[in-house]
Simulated assay, not measured.
Amino acid sequence: MKLFYAERIDWTQSKYEHMTMQALELSTEINEKHQIHLQLPDSIRAGKAKVIVLLEDVTEPQPKKKRVFGQFRGKIKISEDFENELPDDFWLGNDV
């Protein structure tokens, strides 16, 4: 079990704006009934808590499709001004 303390969390515009939070990291299993059971350390006092469940990604990777040479021939058009220099506003992050 890992114990994390957050002395100052920026909860701007939140009802928790002035609250000090404590976070616990516990590992558990989800059972067949879609339930989790946690045993907290005795140092944690009784009261309200919020629970966030982080699930490991267990999706199977999709097999890569083999690329076919020329499959996009005639479907892509490059603009006439493709090789023109971009304006300074573009590089400075300004709207062009």
Rank of each mutant, 00 (worst) to 15 (best):
M21H: 09
Q35M: 13
M21C: 12
I52G: 14
V96M: 07
K15V: 09
S27L: 04
D10G: 04
E17I: 14
L92P: 07
K75D: 06
F69T: 15
E85H: 01
I76C: 02
F69R: 14
W91R: 04
V68P: 12
L38Q: 04
K65R: 06
V53F: 13
K65P: 07
F4R: 08
Q13G: 09
E17T: 15
Q35E: 13
Q62L: 10
L92S: 08
K48I: 08
R73S: 10
F72N: 04
R8C: 01
P41K: 03
L38F: 06
E85R: 01
I78N: 00
G93R: 12
K65L: 13
N84D: 10
I36A: 13
A23R: 07
Q71D: 00
E85S: 05
M19W: 14
W91G: 02
N31Q: 08
F90N: 06
H18V: 14
G93S: 00
V53P: 08
L40T: 09
P63G: 11
L3P: 01
A46M: 02
I52P: 15
A6S: 02
S43Q: 14
R73P: 11
T12F: 02
L55H: 12
V68A: 13
I36D: 01
Q22C: 00
Q62V: 02
Q13D: 15
W11I: 05
T28H: 04
K77A: 00
A49L: 02
L24W: 09
I76H: 05
D88L: 07
L40P: 02
S79W: 09
Q62R: 14
T59V: 10
K66I: 12
I44Q: 06
A49G: 06
M21I: 00
